[in-house]
Structures are given as structure tokens and as C-alpha cells.
């Protein structure tokens, strides 16, 4: 069954239209990477799926239901989102922070019960953050923090997780750790849409890629169909060389500096 179906979606802010006639669909255990230059509408797409902005035209269906008719609280039971930036002004502990993920499942006067605590425990052990449980959120390192943010999202028990550049500020070891973690979550049945700037990590981990350019879908397909030098050079307007990763066989993108480009011409 299709989990998410976006049909002819156009939306934006005030007069500025950012997304134009975007259509694609997602099956139940997709791992979709969203690529594109700055300003191509990647984050806007995530904000439209998560009901922050309304579609101007077109529609978004989740499990065959029109999302315009589902409440924000109902949506949060099946879709979780990790924003690009999350500033937390007060010093919550990791456990308090993760517990907030149970909010959409609780009724107004309902206290978190046995089931909620079990889910929180399960998420904490799954993400291997038991040692951080009583730490203050703001005392964590970048990698630890990202795990905790994912844990909160998983406490929502989502079917779809949206991530906006979740590995931006991490070193390569922690980047790989988070991507491996996401891959494991995907294998156990969670659908993912992830915005990435790193084309090589996208190539290595994602099952499908969606390349956006100026608010439109440029190419949608498998890594080897999207990450071609003709396509990338047209969208990113820079010279790139595409080779094969010798171990995984996936496309590998290399950039070329100005000096090297000019040296070659001579």
C-alpha cells in the first residue's frame, strides 16, 4: 500500500510560491533521500507534509486519508519530524524530553501509564542512550543529542519519520552512526524521508532519491538513475565527477576545485 501520496502539490509563503506541482508517492518501508541545491524547496516539502504550511493546490494523502482532514494531534501519532534546528531554552533531562513524544497518544487528563513507560524504556534501549537518561539535554554532545532527538520522535510510534539534515554538524564517525541507526530503523519497518546535503551518504543509504530543483521534481528514482553527472551538473551548476564506490558499487560523487579545472584545460 502507498503510505504517502503527494499529488500536484504547490505551496509557499505569502506570495512566494516555493513548491510547484510536486507529485510523488512513497511505499510503506521507503528510505527516501531528498536532494537539491539551497532554496530548492526541500524543507518546504517537509513542512507541507507535517502540516506546518497548507497546500495551495494539490493534495497530500497519508494512508489514503487526505491530510487536510486529519488533526494535528492525530497526524503526530503517525508522522514524527526532526527539524533542522531545535533550540531548547530550558534544562529538561533526557528522560523528560523523550517523554514529550508520548503527548499525541495521551488524552487531556490522562497520565502516562505503564504502556507509555514501556515504550520510553524500549526507545531508550534501542538507541543505546540509557546512560544519558538523567543528563540535562543541553549538556550532551552533538551525536548524543541527535540520538535523543530521534528517541523522542520514536516515542511517538510513527510510521513515517521526516528528518531535515540530521547529520549536518556531526563528524564523519557520528554521521555514519546516525545513518546506520536510521537504516536499522528502516529495516524494522519505519518509513523515512531525509533531507541530505551529502550526496555520497544519500547514495550509500537511501533506497530512493528525490532531486528537487527550483521547487519542482527534477528526477525521482534509484541512486544510479539520479546521481549522474549530467543531471547533477545541470541542477547544482558546478563540475562534478561521478565514479563507483568500490565496495558498495553505489555512485560516488567527487568535486573538482577551480585550480584543478583550470590546470586540466591547459
Amino acid at each position: 500500500m502507498e503510505l504517502l501520496k503527494i499529488n500536484n502539490l504547490s505551496c509557499g509563503y505569502n506570495d512566494k510560491k516555493v513548491l510547484k506541482n510536486v507529485s510523488f508517492s512513497l511505499s510503506e518501508n521507503s528510505f527516501l533521500g531528498v536532494l537539491g541545491p539551497n532554496g530548492s524547496g526541500k524543507t518546504t516539502l517537509l513542512r507541507a507534509i507535517s502540516k506546518i504550511i497548507k497546500p495551495e493546490t494539490g493534495s497530500i494523502h497519508f494512508q489514503d486519508k487526505n491530510m487536510a482532514e486529519i488533526s494535528v494531534k492525530e497526524t503526530a501519532k503517525s508522522i514524527a519530524v526532526l527539524p533542522q534546528i531545535l533550540e531548547v531554552p530550558f534544562s529538561f533531562t533526557v528522560e523528560e524530553f523523550i517523554s514529550m513524544g508520548r503527548f499525541p497518544h495521551l488524552k487531556r487528563f490522562e497520565k502516562p501509564g505503564k504502556k507509555d513507560f514501556e515504550i520510553i524504556d524500549k526507545v531508550i534501549s534501542e538507541l543505546d542512550i540509557a546512560a544519558l537518561r538523567q543528563r540535562k539535554l543541553r549538556s550532551l554532545s552533538g551525536g548524543e543529542r541527535q540520538r535523543v532527538l530521534i528517541a523522542q520522535a520514536l516515542a511517538q510510534e510513527p510510521k513515517l519519520l521526516l528528518l531535515d539534515e540530521p547529520i549536518n554538524h556531526l563528524d564523519i564517525k557520528h554521521q555514519i552512526e546516525i545513518m546506520d541507526l536510521l537504516k536499522d530503523l528502516n529495516s524494522s519497518g519505519l518509513a523515512l524521508i531525509i533531507i541530505l546535503h551529502d550526496l555520497n551518504l544519500a547514495s550509500e543509504y537511501c533506497n530512493d532519491l528525490l532531486l528537487l530543483n527550483e521547487g519542482r521534481v527534477h528526477t525521482y528514482g534509484k541512486a544510479q538513475d539520479v546521481l549522474k553527472y549530467e543531471i547533477l551538473e545541470e541542477v547544482y551548476k558546478t563540475i562534478l565527477v561521478v565514479e563507483k564506490n568500490p565496495i558498495s558499487g553505489k555512485p560516488f560523487i567527487m568535486s573538482v576545485s577551480k585550480t584543478a579545472r583550470e590546470g586540466k584545460k591547459k
Binding site: R47, I52, T75, P83, L86, M100, F103, P104
Partner: peptide, 14 residues
């Protein structure tokens, strides 16, 4: 809501 208006929407709050 202390996490910001947008994150609050993601967690199910209007």
C-alpha cells in the same frame, strides 16, 4: 511549547 511553535506542531499541538 518551550521547544518552539513548529516542534510543538510536530508533537501534536495546534
Amino acid at each position: 511549547l518551550t521547544l518552539g511553535e513548529e516542534k510543538a506542531v510536530f508533537l501534536g499541538i495546534d
